[in-house]
């Protein structure tokens, strides 16, 4: 079973969301997502200050064989991107929940974070896809 840290929240589309506690969140893709995609070769990240609504395409991760859209988990504005991924996209494969984070964004409506899945609910999503 893939690793699904309890302290994070998740989207059905396989992004993880970490609450930074200062009104911003960190977003990445799950272990299951990186494993399904295989070796990443390009990561296309948004620009600082870009504003998104929940469900908008924020970033694109491309592996040897597939491209995958990354969606905004909530409404907000980009405040930081993981620039290291430009030269080292493999960090997402090696450490998806750590050094492979994608971007940080503000959260316009903090209560919307409650719409995300907890680890158990995300685990169920993964199990369903594997069947």
């Amino acid at each position: 079973m893939s690793d699904i840290p309890k302290e994070l929240s998740y989207a059905k589309t396989h992004e993880w969301v970490g609450n930074d506690g200062d009104g911003t969140i960190t977003v990445g893709i799950s272990e299951y997502a990186q494993s399904s995609l295989g070796d990443l070769v390009f990561v296309e990240l948004p620009a600082m200050g870009d504003k998104f609504s929940a469900g908008d395409v924020v970033a694109v991760v491309e592996s040897v064989k597939a491209a995958s859209d990354i969606y905004a988990p909530v409404d907000g504005e980009i405040v930081e991107i993981n620039e290291a991924l430009s030269d080292s996209p493999e960090r997402v494969n090696e450490d998806p929940f750590g050094e492979g984070w994608l971007f940080k964004m503000t959260v316009n409506e903090p209560e919307h974070l409650e719409n995300l899945l907890d680890a158990d609910a995300y685990q169920a999503v993964v199990e369903e896809e594997q069947d």
């Binding site: 295989g38 070796d39 070769v41 040897v64 064989k65 493999e90 494969n93």
Partner: peptide, 8 residues
């Protein structure tokens, strides 16, 4: 087998 870890 599609890969054993890393295709690259």
């Amino acid at each position: 087998p599609i890969n054993y870890g890393s295709q690259i």
